[in-house]
């Protein structure tokens, strides 16, 4: 069964993106400027089967994060179709739903509800999240009193304990000190071994090679290679050393 399928997907952004002021609209209407298009993804097609773990590799700005936002349904494709079956939990930018003035406990419940959990499920999972994070009594303190490592630990614990069908990981495989990193990696492998689908965007590393069976190589928005991770990894690293 295909859980993720992209067919001829293209995603463009306006060059002026981000802040759009009234002035820009007036200029466009008056024909002063042509909206310049930037191709973040160009005609990308691939599918991921249930239980596969796939890495997305490529240089900065190759379109990896754009790809993830399309898969999670955050952004619509400019053309082509994106189909996703099953609930995807994204470890995008850990802790994006967190607020510094709320306590750890309040943030856990807020994040669980943002990720689509019911009150009952959130309360059931609460203890395992706190235990995993090793924050103990700090859980009752506002988040602004946390060190950055503690905050990442909390965010990671929330995301991995929510039992997603498709786990989407962006740049973060492990956070915190070495001991906690090992625990994170172990948890991700455990999720994979349960037969969950994993889509992982990360720097190419030995851990990634071990975690994923397959890799997609993106370059300037185009899918240049799709195959077993060993082959794609070798080609990718070969290209890097040639250009260096």
């Amino acid at each position: 069964m295909k859980v993720i399928e992209l067919q001829n997907v293209t995603k463009t952004f306006h060059r002026s993106g981000g802040q759009r002021l009234l002035r820009h609209y007036l200029e466009e209407v008056l024909g002063k400027t042509d909206p310049q298009l930037f191709f973040a993804l160009k005609d990308v097609s691939f599918s991921v089967a249930d239980g596969e773990s796939v890495a997305v590799i490529g240089a900065n700005g190759a379109g990896k994060s754009t790809l993830l936002s399309l898969v999670t349904g955050l952004a619509p494709p400019s053309s082509g179709t994106v189909t996703v079956n099953g609930r995807a939990a994204a470890l995008l930018d850990l802790g994006s739903g967190f607020h510094p003035d709320l306590t750890g406990r309040e943030n856990i419940l807020l994040n669980a509800s943002l990720l689509g959990f019911s009150r009952r499920q959130a309360h059931d999972l609460y203890d395992s999240i706190v235990e995993f994070s090793e924050l103990d009594d700090f859980i009752k303190e506002p988040l602004r009193t946390y060190s950055s490592g503690m905050m990442l630990r909390l965010a990671f614990s929330v995301a991995v304990n929510l039992d997603p069908q498709i786990l989407i990981i962006d740049e973060v495989l492990a956070v915190g000190d070495q001991k906690f990193q090992a625990k994170c990696t172990e948890k991700i492998f455990e999720i994979r071994n349960q037969g969950r689908t994993i889509l992982c965007v990360s720097h190419f590393s030995p851990t990634l090679r071990e975690l994923c069976d397959r890799a997609l190589w993106l370059d300037h928005g185009q899918l240049v290679m799709d195959g077993p991770i060993a082959e794609v990894g070798a080609a990718y690293e070969g290209r890097l050393s040639r250009s260096a």
Binding site: L102, G116, R119, A122
Partner: peptide
């Protein structure tokens, strides 16, 4: 596909507390 009421309640409480 989540729990709308639970989410709404959490967001309202968040705004109020902050």
């Amino acid at each position: 596909k989540g729990d709308y009421l639970f989410l709404l309640q959490n967001l309202v409480v968040k705004d109020f507390k902050i």
